[in-house]
């Protein structure tokens, strides 16, 4: 073993270690549990509970209603026990269910938030030429997606590929099949919405149908990316999808997406109903693509990003009618 003279400044000079000395270790993924990786703090910090007046008011109202209900039931039991007790049981069940749902929501929101944090990390790693951060990140993703570690990715690590390369490999091997599944869900939902709204006789029914089918689609897409959404979480997702789709709509007003709508309105000339169906189908398609963007754990790095033009081509036949079969 040759030891170089200690240098206080400048680059470290070359040196050599005797392999028999055992004074080195293989670079391995961190041994500690991959379940709770070191992740950066969430992008926007949620407000602390004491700074939420709305939450306070809501809790106060619920508390008062609850106290009054118990008080009322107590008196009812005194007056007519046969009527009071069943009501009491009913109330207990209702309160318990409400708490369970609330707990579920809170838990779910935390998962969704964690997924958001992961996505931010993923976007950063996708361009990183450094080493060592991809492993805990991908372990957390494997956990979210319920995947086993892929051998090719372990080999990539051993080779010494950079974080960005490993993340690209993960996108290819794990996310690409899920992208296909999610895209298929968008197509199906888009077609359904198109057909259903063309058939439904009432404007109001249209709205309900679109909302119902779109929510199912959103939950399906989220599930494809390893997120089981509770109702509140899916409404939250729907909200941000609509917001983003609206922004995208504004931006697209002069670009090709507008042409897509013109294509749809040509159909409207042929048949008002079918035209409405086509417009709604495209809307559902756009919401679906937005949901993919929002729930996919990584940005689209090398895989092709699904586009509205593709959705349109896939669900409308050449005459502008919604296809019965897609594929």
């Amino acid at each position: 073993m040759t030891a170089p003279p200690p240098s206080s400044k400048g680059p470290i000079l070359p040196f050599e270690v005797d392999p028999a000395s055992g004074r080195f270790e293989r670079e391995e993924a961190p041994v500690e549990s991959p379940r709770e990786p070191d992740l950066p703090a969430p992008l926007e910090k949620p407000r602390p509970w004491w700074r939420r007046p709305g939450l306070f008011a809501f809790a106060a109202v619920v508390g008062i209603v609850l106290i009054q209900a118990i008080d009322y039931l107590g008196r009812l039991i005194e007056r007519a026990p046969l009527l009071g007790w069943p009501f009491m049981v009913l109330l207990a069940v209702a309160v318990f269910t409400a708490f369970a749902a609330l707990w579920n929501e809170v838990f779910n929101m935390r998962r969704v938030r964690r997924a958001e944090t992961l996505r931010a990390t993923g976007a950063r790693l996708a361009t990183s030429e450094l080493h060592g951060e991809a492993e805990p990140f991908l372990a957390a993703l494997d956990n979210q997606l319920d995947e086993r570690p892929k051998p090719d990715i372990q080999v990539a690590r051993e080779r010494g590929l950079s974080d960005a390369e490993i993340v690209v490999l993960y996108e290819r091997q794990v996310l690409a099949p899920r992208d296909k599944r999610a895209y298929r869900l968008v197509l199906e939902a888009s077609r359904d919405v198109g057909i259903l709204t063309a058939l439904s006789p009432l404007g109001l029914l249209d709205g309900v149908l679109v909302l119902w089918r779109t929510t199912i689609m959103l939950r399906g897409i989220a599930r494809a990316y390893g997120l089981a959404l509770s109702p509140a979480a899916s409404i939250r997702l729907l909200k941000s999808c609509i917001r983003n789709a609206a922004i995208a709509g504004l931006a697209d007003a002069v670009s090709h997406a507008a042409v897509e709508h013109v294509g749809a309105s040509l159909t409207a000339l042929l048949s008002a109903r079918a035209g409405q169906g086509a417009g709604n189908a495209l809307l559902a398609g756009r919401l679906g693509l937005e949901a993919i963007r929002l729930t996919r754990p990584l940005p689209f790095i090398q895989e092709p990003r699904p586009r509205l033009a593709h959705v349109r081509a896939a669900i409308f036949d050449s005459s502008g009618k919604v296809k019965q079969e897609i594929g």
């Binding site: 680059p11 470290i12 000079l13 070359p14 040196f15 050599e16 270690v17 005797d18 392999p19 004074r23 080195f24």
Partner: peptide
């Protein structure tokens, strides 16, 4: 022979 080398940066 086997070696562990820091070849410089």
């Amino acid at each position: 022979r086997d070696t562990v080398l820091f070849p410089g940066e």
